[in-house]
Amino acid sequence: MSGVLLYKSELCGLIHFLVADQTVIAPVPLTHGQFKFAAVTTLEEIALDAIPTLLPPKKYFLPPQESLLQYDTTQGEKMQAEVAIEETVLFGLHTCDLAGIQCLDMVFADRPKDLHYMIRKQHFTLIGLECNDYCDSSANCAMLFNHLPKGGYDLFLTDLGDYYFVDINTHKGDLLVEKSGLFVPVTPAAQDNLQKLRQIKTKRFKSEIPIRYQDIKPLFEASFESNVWTDIGAKCLACGNCTNACPTCYCFDIVDEPEFDLTRGKRLRIWDSCQHENFARIAGGENFRKERGDRQRHRYNRKFHYPMERYKQIFCTGCGRCSRTCMARIDLKETFNALIEECR
């Protein structure tokens, strides 16, 4: 790992350099203190102070709707598997979102591999941006150590006043630094400042929930039959916003979309949600997660329990999106506290 510096006066130039030959995606402001990732062409459009966006960057890795196959049935069931790609830079990814992308990478690289995902992701360049302080009170990133960079980026920017400390994590990142000619070598003072910021951050960011990392999975194992799930179920509207907003949720459906001649069309992958009524219903009419509470329990276990067994990872990044988006105010931290309280 090696670092360089980027003076803030050069940031404008960096965006200019990036947009020259690829699409640049960054957080942009909406109303009411909300943000979303969108294509930008200038620095002015970018929100450098964005809290986690309404939809996470997974919308580029796993689009809400994408074509898996093109088909043509004029002579039998003919098809061609395909993926849409575009050279893209994702700029301004916070550490929580980088962690989310790492989770998705793991899932889709796991055998049997999902080549559509794997091919597409190679066309992305990821530039992270450190949070010096909390985005807001919904976040629980420190509890999962996701307030600090843990790889998963090409370049990573840390705001140190007049300049960004830039961690170069990949050859791709290195090439970008070299070609743009906007970066300068690291100084000892900058190294020093980075250390200082990280120290300050250890004071600012404290585990948001009174539980140790290693006790999280056991907590969920112990509370499968908990009343907390029934309570949450009574509030939940099963709208699925919590899963669509979650950077590590990836459930999907597969549907065909014919053209008007009915012989040609596409087989699409579209986002689905385990919160929907019919998600686990089978042809006999049996529904394996009938109650809203069952489905919420499933969502939480898919973050904090099952992936620990399969991928040795917790699949919550701590971004707080599920809590922010839920109009029934089902709040991740409150749920944890209720479970902890009950298990005491």
């Binding site: 909406l30 109303t31 009411h32 909300q34 979303k36 966006t53 309404l54 939809l55 809400p64 509207l237 099963a238 709208c239 699925g240 916003n241 669509n244 907003a245 986002w271 949600s273 929907h276 009524e277 019919n278 988006t325 109009m327």
Partner: peptide, 20 residues
């Protein structure tokens, strides 16, 4: 579809009316 309009609303990244 037997799920809520909210699903499509969030996919369009609208700021939720309840926020307003």
């Amino acid at each position: 579809p037997d799920y809520a309009v909210c699903v499509e609303c969030l996919l369009n990244e609208n700021v939720c009316m309840y926020e307003k």
